[in-house]
């Protein structure tokens, strides 16, 4: 078998999404050992323009499909096109982002291609002649390393920020238009409107990142420094019960046993002591950063990373340093 790989890239605002380069990086890891070519498929409005940005990455072909009917994402439209491309290329591995689109599309196309899919992987590598994917299970309380049985097309979705993005490697990749025959009327579930989060922050219970202030915020106005950090990270702002009780924050953003129960990937607790009532609401966060003056604050017992210091000094610095790298 040829071990060819298809990378399903994602387009945003006429440019290429970062995950696409990470997927190419992952595909290279496989192809350098297993051989085989890497193709990339880009679907949707602006696909061709975005494809131009990928021509120097040592890909065999970049397939683009940007018909009218594909302007906006739809599971059925995109699945039809991607299935066609997968079928035609007879790929061994198809890499997708573990993004809203990849998670929605991947299993549907897998089913159509009678393939097998590993979702939300954090790492891929070759082991002998097999592509091994590592993925978290039980919400990250364990990991499995998994391989396909047999020769079915293997779809692998990879979480953003886990594999280093590929660097350009020179050369020039041809861009090939895929003539899809997707009929708009045949799509049964259509996106009719998009509500961007612009300005507004995500809802606490759904946010991937949360910045929370405790009693040590001292004043309502001081939440500004948390908001600055939150805006940078696309995060929601929360407050401990103590901060709410003291009138620094509205009860709507209270995190804890009697407030919102949250489960973000990153939780930054600023001046929160970590009483059980608060911990009960956020202790399942994947990564907890605690910033507190008191080295004995119970929050440090739960935190992943801790800084003992004045939050009014640390938080603005953190915003500043993150700005430099994001």
């Amino acid at each position: 078998m040829a071990n060819d790989i298809l990378v399903f890239g994602e387009v945003r605002g006429g440019g290429i999404k970062k995950i696409t380069k990470e997927l190419i990086g992952a595909a290279r890891r496989i192809s350098t050992v297993a051989g085989g070519a890497i193709d990339t498929a880009l679907i949707g409005a602006g696909a061709r323009a975005a494809a131009e940005g990928l021509t120097g990455y040592g890909l065999r072909t970049i397939v683009v499909a940007e018909d009218e009917a594909l302007a906006r994402y739809s599971t059925e439209g995109y699945a039809a096109v991607l299935s066609d491309i997968v079928k035609r290329g007879a790929y061994s591995y198809i890499f997708l982002g573990a993004t809203a689109m990849g998670r929605d599309l991947g299993p549907r196309v897998t089913a159509r291609a009678d393939g097998v899919m590993f979702s939300d992987c954090v790492d891929v590598r070759m082991e002998g002649n097999r592509c091994v994917a590592r993925r978290p299970v039980y919400s990250g309380r364990a990991y499995v390393e998994i391989v396909r049985s047999g020769e079915r097309p293997n779809f692998i979705s990879i979480r953003p920020n886990n594999v280093a993005p590929a660097e350009p490697s020179g050369g020039s990749t041809p861009i090939e238009a895929h003539a899809s025959n997707v009929m708009r009327d045949a799509i049964r579930a259509v996106v009719t409107e998009i509500f961007p989060l612009e300005g507004g922050r995500p809802d606490l219970t759904e946010a991937d990142v949360i910045v929370t202030g405790g009693r040590a915020m001292k004043d309502k106005a001081n939440f500004k420094i948390l908001e600055d950090l939150a805006d940078l990270l696309g995060a929601a702002v929360g407050a401990s019960r103590a901060a709410v009780d003291a009138g620094f924050a509205p009860v709507a953003i209270q995190v804890g046993q009697t407030g919102k129960i949250v489960n973000p990937k990153l939780y930054i607790a600023c001046g929160v002591s970590g009483a059980i009532q608060h911990l009960a609401g956020m202790r399942t966060s994947k990564v907890i950063v605690a910033i507190n003056k008191d080295p004995n604050a119970p929050i440090f017992e739960r935190a992943t990373y801790g800084i003992v210091g004045d939050l009014f000094e640390v938080v603005p610095l953190l915003t500043e340093e993150l700005k430099k790298v994001l």
């Binding site: 046993q257 129960i261 059980i276 911990l279 009960a280 202790r283 399942t284």
Partner: peptide
């Protein structure tokens, strides 16, 4: 589920 009032 966990026999205590907190989700522990």
């Amino acid at each position: 589920v966990n026999y205590n009032p907190w989700a522990i």
